[in-house]
């Protein structure tokens, strides 16, 4: 029987070069944005660059989603309508947002930009997602703190495409405060915004949480990189629609390689699940080989119990 299911392999990009490189490496869709409206974008795209990326991707038969996922304050709302209207004229394939103001805005401006609902940590159950679906979402990104079983149950109980992250670091904290700058002020050191930083838990030398500031505040990223390459069978079996590789704070060459590995793994599984089983440890090894020294790998919360 012919399988109609075709997952979308998505990757974030920091600039036009990376857009092209990741597409050639096998991404079906590219995710990008500008920190003015997007949380944790990999690099700032001007509107002109968004247009170039869109045109280029569409020629290649690929899709583009724009991150508009900031937690909006009144000030954001002043320029947001124009931004959204422009994105619509570019014909981008969708916007990614997680603030309820977006429903209002799309309605009021009569825009047909497809909405991927992504409120970071708040996308945790099927009833909630069905609620937002009734308000207009077209797709939803699930929170990273869910078990794979919960993801699969959600997939079974909603009638629209869902996406999960399968690779890269995840955001574990967002503050509106400038928590790095404040610290530098406190210890009377000069703060260099270009400098990359990480924090370690006290007396836990093997921890490594990247921390950075952008226009939306301070973000802390996970201690490990999520690596789901060996569990794609379960994800693809459940017909999860979008698989995201988050390349934030990684080099272009790393991201390129990762995308190509996932591309190959997905295609292999869809063609012949048995071949996937044979080859998956090799892919895992290939990832390990290029993994930055400080970045441990794990499977996030997909197989982990949480208490509360």
């Amino acid at each position: 029987m012919m399988c109609l299911y075709k997952p979308e392999l998505q990757a974030t990009a920091k600039d036009l070069d990376e857009v092209k490189a990741l597409t050639k490496a096998g991404a079906d869709a590219i995710v990008l944005g500008n920190q003015q409206f997007g949380n944790r974008v990999c690099g700032d795209f001007t509107l002109d660059q968004v247009k170039s990326a869109t045109d280029w991707l569409h020629l290649e038969g690929k899709r583009i989603y724009i991150m508009v996922n900031a937690i909006f304050h009144n000030d954001h709302l002043k320029q947001l309508p124009d931004y959204l209207k422009t994105l619509e004229t570019f014909g981008v394939d969708g916007i990614i947002a997680g603030d309820q103001a977006i429903f209002q805005l799309l309605d009021e401006l009569n825009l047909t930009l497809p909405l991927t609902w992504n409120p970071a940590t708040l996308s945790t159950n099927y009833q909630t997602l069905n609620f937002w679906h009734q308000r207009g979402l077209k797709r939803a990104t699930l929170s990273n703190e869910l078990s794979l079983d919960a993801v699969i149950e959600i997939k079974q109980k909603v009638a629209f495409p869902i996406e999960i992250q399968v690779h890269g670091m995840t955001c574990i904290f967002q503050s509106k405060r400038k928590l790095i700058r404040n610290y530098y002020n406190h210890i009377k050191e000069d703060y260099n915004p270009e400098q990359m930083r990480f924090i370690k838990e006290d007396k836990k030398d093997d921890t490594h949480y990247p921390i950075f500031e952008d226009g939306n505040g301070t973000h802390i990223m996970s201690n490990e990189d999520l690596v789901m390459i060996e569990y794609l069978d379960q994800i693809l079996e459940a017909e999860i629609d979008g698989l995201l590789i988050n390349g934030i704070l990684k080099t272009k060459s790393y991201n390129e390689k990762i995308v190509s590995i996932y591309r190959e793994a997905i295609d292999t599984y869809l063609n012949n699940p048995r071949h996937y089983q044979i080859k998956k440890s090799g892919w895992r090894q290939a990832i390990e080989d290029i993994q930055p020294e400080q970045r441990a790998m794990n499977t996030g919360f997909y197989f982990k119990e949480q208490i509360y």
Partner: peptide, 14 residues
Amino acid sequence: RCVLSNHMTSRDAN
């Protein structure tokens, strides 16, 4: 928007 506890202690903050 904080899941520090989830990551550092496996306790779900939300």
